[in-house]
């Protein structure tokens, strides 16, 4: 993975988030506070803007810059969660060429960051339920398989529909949180879908 690919990855994720802003917001209105689409779209637009035309020496630097923008511009719970994930990913590849093994370490570090920040575990109807299977799926093979990542992330995102939330605002709804996709899981799916796309093209 090269600098240009990280920029491309985040910029494409931004395109999805802009297009799906209303969809994410409608998901969040059902079980959250209804600001996920707006927050993510606003924040990632700033990310794309802040990375545009900038020269970065290594992958770690791009991710760090993105993390800082996400932390301050996304807001809600997603700002700290995605910001922490990106920051941990950046730290995991500092000074390194990003090969497949390093990429796995980065996703693992990102997931750990999310779990720590959100005090979340798997099965709680959150973005953790997408990141965890994606990481496992990556570990099972020895090279980057975009189709596989996209498929695992999509299935994992869909699986959150039947789960009962025990974290975040949705947890207050108890049983009634079932039957809705988790908005954070859906935005995480966009992230991995675009990672898969960009890496496949490389």
């Amino acid at each position: 993975m090269e600098v240009i690919q990280v920029q491309e990855w985040l910029s494409r994720t931004n395109e999805d988030l802009q297009e799906q802003k209303d969809y994410l917001t409608s998901l969040d209105r059902a079980i959250g506070d209804g600001d996920h689409g707006i927050n993510m779209a606003r924040g990632f637009k700033e990310v794309t803007k802040s990375l545009e035309g900038k020269d970065f020496t290594e992958v770690s630097d791009v991710l760090k810059a993105a993390a800082t923008t996400v932390m301050s511009k996304v807001g809600g719970a997603s700002g700290p969660l995605y910001g922490t994930a990106l920051l941990k990913m950046s730290m995991a590849c500092k000074g390194k060429q990003v090969d497949y093994k390093t990429l796995i370490e980065m996703v693992e570090a990102g997931l750990e960051g999310i779990k720590q920040r959100g005090k979340a575990e798997t099965g709680e109807k959150t973005m953790v339920d997408v990141w965890t299977p994606v990481l496992s799926g990556m570990k099972e093979v020895d090279h980057f398989d975009g189709e596989r990542i996209k498929h695992v992330a999509e299935e994992a995102k869909d699986n959150t529909e039947s789960m009962q939330a025990t974290k975040g605002r949705a947890a207050y709804l108890k049983e009634r949180s079932k039957g809705h996709l988790d908005p954070g899981a859906v935005s995480s799916y966009f992230l991995f879908k675009n990672l898969a796309l960009v890496m496949e093209e490389a």
Binding site: A77, G79, P80, T84, G118, R169
Partner: peptide, 9 residues
């Protein structure tokens, strides 16, 4: 919730 996360950061 998110107040805690932002404050921690």
């Amino acid at each position: 919730g998110s107040a805690r996360m932002n404050a921690e950061m």
